[in-house]
């Protein structure tokens, strides 16, 4: 049985938020260790959107962003998207490589970004796995630098199979001096919501 996104009660939303909180808390810690700087994160938000509003997330449909996408499967399945602006992406690799030039992203940089995404997503998923007792396996990253609308169409289509709304858990990251901000989206497959909520005793 899938979940009716239109009829989530506040209890379920709180649990999803808490999942986001724990997952992204671990991811933020991993990021902070990696770049050896302080990383703040926002309180995760559970967003339920109509398709027409999806592309307004992340600065509008034509805004160019860096998206790093993961698929996870096992006892539950879904996707994780780590999205950041081009400027943040550049700043992030500059911090990693300890340099300060502002050149275009090259292949090496993109590979480094994929790896950052990989570590963030793996720590997110691992904490979810520990919390719920569900076995989860994460894919290798796939990266795309393109229009936000085009990148967000991928999770939107996955929800499109089940209904007319999209649900995701969004957390915003900020490196201490504001040079790097990013969004981490957890997008469980609709069938997996019940599995996850069930394990946590909510439904």
């Amino acid at each position: 049985m899938g979940l009716d996104i239109d009829n989530l009660n506040s209890n379920m939303i709180d649990v999803l938020k808490e999942l986001g909180n724990i997952g992204s808390g671990n991811a933020a810690t991993a990021l902070a260790k990696m770049i050896n700087k302080k990383v703040d994160m926002s309180v995760p938000q559970v967003k339920i959107l109509d398709y027409k509003d999806v592309s307004d997330v992340l600065g509008g449909p034509e805004n160019v962003i860096v998206g790093i996408y993961f698929h996870f499967e096992g006892d539950a399945a879904g996707n994780i998207l780590f999205a950041l602006s081009q400027k943040s992406a550049k700043n992030l690799v500059n911090i990693l490589f300890n340099r300060d030039n502002g050149k275009q992203l090259d292949e090496m940089d993109i590979s480094a970004l994929s790896e950052v995404g990989n570590i963030l997503s793996a720590s997110y998923i691992n904490s979810l796995s520990t919390l719920t007792g569900l076995k989860l396996k994460i894919s290798v990253p796939s990266i795309s630098i393109d229009m936000a609308g085009a990148i967000l169409s991928v999770p939107a289509i996955q929800f499109g199979v089940m209904g007319d709304k999209v649900l995701f858990i969004e957390t915003e990251f900020q490196e201490g001096k504001n040079q790097v901000t990013g969004d981490l989206f957890l997008i469980p497959d609709i069938d997996s919501f019940n599995t996850i909520l069930n394990k946590l005793g909510v439904v």
């Binding site: 592309s55 509008g60 609308g149 085009a150 169409s153 939107a156």
Partner: peptide, 20 residues
């Protein structure tokens, strides 16, 4: 996304950020 429209000239129909 998941929308359609028609127009009789003059006019333009646009869609932003088509992915899949």
């Amino acid at each position: 996304m998941a929308d359609l429209a028609v127009v009789k000239s003059p006019g333009k129909l646009i869609t932003l950020g088509l992915g899949s």
